[in-house]
C-alpha cells in the first residue's frame, strides 16, 4: 500500500503531534495504516458509496480519539490521508460539516491530478512518520 497525504493533513498532524496530550496519534496512524491490505483498510464510514475509490471516515481510539478522513484508490493500492482532528482536548472539535467533507474530497482529487502530495514512510525503528514531497506512482 502506498500512503500519501495532503498538505492539510501534514499541517494538522504536526500541530497535534507537538502537543503532549495527542502524542499517541503518530503511533495510532502507524498501527492502523501501515502494512495493511486494502480490504483491511476498507472499514469505517464510507462517505461516497464508491466500491473502487471509497472515501472513508475512520474513528481511531473510539469516541474520545481521533477522526481521520482518507481516500482509497483500490486498483492502484494508493491511500490518501486527507484530514485528521481530535474529538477531545484543547484542539478537540465536533465532526466536520458535509460541505467540508465535499471540499476535502474535491481537493484530494485536484492534488492527485497535480501531484501535490506527500509520500509517507516510516523510519528504521518504524515508530516515526517521514513525509516526503513526491510524485504519485
Amino acid at each position: 500500500m502506498n500512503i500519501y497525504c495532503l498538505e492539510d493533513f501534514k499541517v494538522e498532524f504536526e500541530k497535534l503531534n507537538s502537543k503532549k496530550s495527542y502524542n499517541n496519534l503518530e503511533q495510532d496512524i502507524i498501527d492502523y495504516f501501515f502494512d495493511k491490505s486494502t480490504i483491511e483498510l476498507s472499514a469505517g464510514v464510507r462517505l461516497n458509496n464508491s466500491e473502487d475509490n471509497p472515501y472513508i471516515k475512520k474513528r481511531l481510539n473510539g469516541r474520545g480519539g481521533f477522526r481521520l478522513y482518507f481516500l482509497l484508490i483500490i486498483k492502484q493500492e494508493n491511500l490518501y490521508l486527507m484530514f485528521v482532528h481530535p474529538k477531545t482536548g484543547s484542539e478537540g472539535s465536533e465532526n466536520i460539516t458535509d460541505e467540508s467533507k465535499a471540499f476535502l474530497y474535491k481537493k484530494v482529487l485536484n492534488c492527485i491530478k497535480s501531484n501535490d502530495l506527500y509520500h509517507l514512510s516510516l523510519n528504521d525503528n518504524k515508530d516515526t512518520l517521514i513525509f516526503k514531497r513526491t510524485e504519485v506512482v
Binding site: 464510514v45 462517505l47 461516497n48 465532526n95 460541505e99 465535499a102
Partner: peptide, 29 residues
C-alpha cells in the same frame, strides 16, 4: 455520530453537486 453519518452518507452528501461531480471524476482516475 453514527446516525449523523448515516444522514450525511445517504441523504445530505449525495445532494451536494460538487460531491457527486468529484465521485464521477474520481472514477476516471
Amino acid at each position: 455520530e453514527n446516525y449523523q453519518d448515516l444522514e450525511s452518507v445517504f441523504f445530505f452528501l449525495p445532494e451536494i453537486s460538487e460531491f457527486k461531480e468529484t465521485t464521477k471524476l474520481l472514477s476516471l482516475v
